[in-house]
Design a protein around this nucleic acid. Sequence first.
DNA 1: AGCACGCCGACT
DNA 2: GTCGGCGTGCTC
Length: 688
Amino acid sequence: MSSADGAGEQLAFIRETVRRARPRAARGLELAAELPVARVLVDKGVLSLDQYFDYAVPAAMAEEARPGVRVRVRFGARVGASGRREGGALHDGFLVERLAASDYPGPLAPLARVVSPEPVLTPALLRLCRAVADRYAGTLADVLQLAVPPRHARAEAVPSPAPLPSPPAPDPGGWSRYPQGPAFLASLASGHAPRAVWTALPGPGWPHEIARAVAAALAGGRGALVVLPDGRAVARVDAALTELLGPGRHAVLAAEAGPEDRYRSWLAVSRGSVRAVIGTRATVFAPVRDLGLLVVWSDGDGSHSDPNAPYPHVREVALLRAAEEGAGVLLGGLSTTVEAAQLLRTGWARPLAAERETVRALAPRVRTVTDLDQARDAAAQAARLPSVAWEAAREALTRGPVLIQVPRRGYLPRLSCGRCRTPARCRPCGGPLEAGAADTPPTCSWCGTAEPDWHCEECGSFRLRAQVVGARRTAEELGKAFPRVPVRTSGRDAVLADVPGTPALVIATPGAEPVADGGYAAALLLDGWALLTRPDLRAGEETLRRWLTAAALVRPASAGGAVVVVAEPTARPVQALVRWDPAGHAGIELDEREQLRFPPVSRMASVTGSPQAVTDLLNLVRLPEGADVLGPVPAPGGRGEELERALLRVAPGQGAALASALKAAQIARLALRTAEPVRIRIDPTDIG
DNA sequence: AGCACGCCGACT
DNA sequence: GTCGGCGTGCTC
């Protein structure tokens, strides 16, 4: 057996010492004269199969069966009742390596087919995927599925164009607004690997700054890669890059393009025809040659978390890749994550931030109001606008568009007391009440009990209010409040990229805010308290990120730009928004995590399953020294069958040991057929 | 995952 | 005596 993970060193040693002259293979098959053994990763996403298998290379495939190509192999063959070998089913795989001999004692099955001669799994990509699989206690096959797009024969048949020569180094442009900006570009252009956490200034500059950083890496004769959270951000950087460098210098890997276009772009990168690539999360794996720079924009955005096993996060993959390939890193955003703050604190990255004075000059004026300060105007009341917000919007609408950010519908359909805001709870079980369909009583989201005659335990009020009103209803109500002003909405299913600079109300859910030509005259950030009270470790950070994203689209204070945020003014994210200090906010959050020993100051994993299964796995796992086991406790959000969850916590340096211990325990349990499944998740997000 | 081998209870 | 239970191990 040739282990595909790091634990196979003894086997590697045996491989060195045992040298067979020729592999034994099926009789009568002529084998390749040179390196007749192919080590293959069989694409069968089963934990216990996370290892390589050796196959014989038929002479006819000697040329095409190069490392990195896709192959088909028979797998699972066995000796039948008649004593003859019966071929197993055909499986896809990647040829990882050609060898002179195999350490497998039995006869080798031949490769069934070389699917195409395109070497898609380069050694660097394989190393990265291996590292990601280990980091996340997943299988190599699962990670490869995320990293290598499905083959499209037509796209493969077309040759990619010859690469263009390196462009000249760009001038600093907007980077001159950051004291360390020009030096960062110069360092990239001269072939170094600077690592920075970039707190971007508000306004429309950041796509251009990203383009210049890419251009600097290209000027230094190296490649660059940019990962953005969504298609609109990709489009903005795409436009900025085309403007700076012209067409043909970069590839775009976004889901919007069909599979054929996507694979063609990916091939252009893989073949070295294009040296820069931008796109959404899978782009972090794009096989850019001689990588000089990795850019991750807005690493706090949830889209950077892959929803497929083993759930890698773009930022973490980028950090692994930077270490493997010696590339520079630009971790940028309007806001700062706790993870980024930690990279600064450990000295792994340097800050790339503007002076306070510059920030103040470019940020809008931010005011806070509590939503108890309701407007007297009836129309504003209907729209749930506090008077300050109402006045700000009315005044700003004479000068330009006004952005109104409302939480997504169904984001938090919880109910609270209409007078004192105490969350409404179910009397039998204490679970949160949710709004039912129209004209049906509220029901408990835990036990389903209907509460037709609820009253507040705190103040006795009988009025309930939905904590969140969706974008559509807000639009209707605001339309009435501001007659004759055009109302545009941008949300989940109809996202506007941009709006003109003329007066209009623009209602948007977080992440769907259109860019306004010339900037918004004002922005109202509603229902902040609903965002802030979510029981999530990242609630504060996430709320601030959403606010800053919207507020950054508003004109500077000097040009009359104003932001009104409806939230408790003493809350930490509110203060950070007023001072426009995301880095400071992240630093304080990091201090707190340090005290609580929460991630990223520690490394965590969760184990979820039936109480028995969780207990069994915990008994089986050989945790690294000093590991904490928290729980098990009933799993959050678990309904129906009872699920339990345990959290495991280790010091940051022991993350790899924790992942491999969990993987080993999972494999051991999988061998026991009776075992119920447990879900293992590294860096679980829904803690706290 | 499949799939076959192997060692202990109730049937012709 | 055997048919068959599913625990255990293997797949290049």
